[in-house]
Amino acid sequence: MGIKSKDLISLADLSVEEMKEVFMNAKSMKDIISRDIKKVPTLRGKVVVNLFYENSTRTRSSFELAGKYMGADVINISASSSSVAKGENLRDTAKTLERMGADIVIMRHPVSGSHHILAQALQARVINAGDGTHEHPTQALLDIFTMMEHLGSVEGKKIAIIGDILHSRVARSNIIGLNALGAEVWVCGPPTLIPSQVEKLGVKVTWDMEKALEAADVVMMLRIQLERQSKGLFPSTREYAKLYGLNERKLKLAKDNALVMHPGPMNRGIEITAEVAEGLLSVIEEQVTNGVAIRMALLYAMGGGKGNVVD
C-alpha cells in the first residue's frame, strides 16, 4: 500500500485507511523495538534528514531512532549550528539537502505552514514534525495509536484535550485524526487559549474542566508554555494549575479506566501532578515508545522518495 500523498504535512493528508495501515504496521514495529537487536534493513541505503528549527529532544530522537532501526542513514541538522544561522533561506537549505541525496526530510519549524515551502521545492518526501501552531501529525498518530491499543477503537469515545488549545499543534492534528475516526472530541481551556471558531472543527468546547472530564475515556493534557503567562494569556501558573491542572481528585470525574496522556515535556505541578503523571491510568511513557513505532511505520510507508508514491 503505502501513502498516496507525497508529503505528510497535515494529518488530513492521510485517508482513514492509510492511518489504519500505519497503526497496523506500528504494532510489528513495536516488536522490533523490544528485540535485542533492533535493526531491520528495510530502509538500507535511504537517507533521512532531521531538520530542526526548534529545540526538541523527544520528537527528534524518536525520528532519529526510527530511521536507524529501519536501517536508514539519518542525519540531524539543528538551526543554531547550521547555515541558517548565516541567513540562508528555508528553500535553499532544503534544496541543498536534497542535492546531497535526502530521500525524506523531516522538519520541525516555529512558523505554521513552513512545510509547504519544502514540499513545493523538493522531490524528497516531507514529514512534518511540528510547524508553529499548526500541526504535529506524527504526534497525533502516536496518540491515537496509544488510545486504540487500550480502547480497541476510538469511535464514540470521549476524548478531552485540555490546556492551551490556541497554540497547540498537537490538538489540531488530534482533532483531525480523531474526528476522522469517529471520536467525540472535547477541547477545554481558558477562553484566552481557545482559538476562534474552534467549534466549527467539529469539537465540543468548554472552559469548565469538570465538564470536559466528565465520563471521559481519554484525558489528554497539553503542555502550557510558561511564557504565555507573561504575554497576559492567564494571570499566574498558580491560577492556571488550579483551574486546568489535572490532579487525582479531578481525574475521578473521568471514567474509571480512563487514559491519561501528555505529549511531553510535562510541567509537573502545573498542568499535571506527579501522582497523576505516574499513576495507574497514565500511558505517558507508552506514548514515547509508540512514538518510535509509529515513526518507523511511517518511514516504512513513505520510505523511498517520490518513486514510492502510490498512484
Binding site: G113, R169, L201
Partner: peptide, 15 residues
C-alpha cells in the same frame, strides 16, 4: 483574519 481559517492554519489572527 481571525476566524475559522486562522484556527485551521494555526496562524495568529487579526480580529
Amino acid at each position: 483574519h481571525e476566524g475559522l481559517v486562522s484556527t485551521q492554519l494555526g496562524l495568529a489572527g487579526i480580529p
